[in-house]
Amino acid sequence: MELRFEDVDFGYKNQAQVLHKINLTINEPGLTCIIGPNGVGKSTLVKCMNKLLIPNSGKVTLDDREVKDFNLKELSTITSFVPATSMDNFSLNVIDTVLMGRHPYSKIGSEKEDMHIVYGILKSLNITHLAMRNYNELSAGQHQKVSIARGLAQEPRILILDEPTANLDIRHQVKVIELLHDMAHEKGMTIIMISHDLNVAARYADKIIVMSTPGVVYDVGEPHEVITKEMIRYVYGMNCTVVDNEGRPHIILGSALSDEEVYELHRSESSP
């Protein structure tokens, strides 16, 4: 399945434009990480992928058909979105929460099959023991897994996650990302996630999209192509050293640039 952005501009009502002329193609299964500093439009970008937001101009297409022309139900069988999790009033137990992911397919008499699918997903995420627990009783890491399970229950071809590793300790971060990486390859899915941890992204992603101010795509490519000290300096305003870690780039952070230096850098250089 090919997801393509063509000259996409987006701005929230009465506010400055967030995305500028985004051109992007994601057409191979695997794990794609979107990185970039705060407020650069990463969440806005992923929300344009599944009609949560509709671009002001330009086109977002799935296999050459515009995303805005899909109805929500149809779209929900192709893409699924795992929002940044939070505690909710009136949460359900884990089975019922994951069963929600079956909603796009639900029909009378499909309960047994849905339960079978849900069990398979819980098992693959090693959380069958949580099945009967209430969602709100779980820890942050468990929330994340349950949310991912719900996303998977939709059997999407494209799974989109908004910072799935926020609030997780390093071990759980790595476990969640390893899981996503393996799933993308085993099931031939396209998984797109926003990440703030560059080293984790560099280690596990098949492809990295770097976003930079003012809401543009700075670079797209494999980790060793895009994770460079020039990129970190320009996009994040940080000095660093990039070393090799088992064939993957690894960043050792140095000092932060001053505001004036960042300003000068952005003024004198244009993105490649």
Binding site: K73, E74, S76, S80, P83, M100, Q154
Partner: peptide, 11 residues
């Protein structure tokens, strides 16, 4: 309960 965005992505 999965939030407005969650609900929307569930159709």
């Amino acid at each position: 309960t999965s939030g407005d965005e969650g609900a929307k992505s569930l159709g």
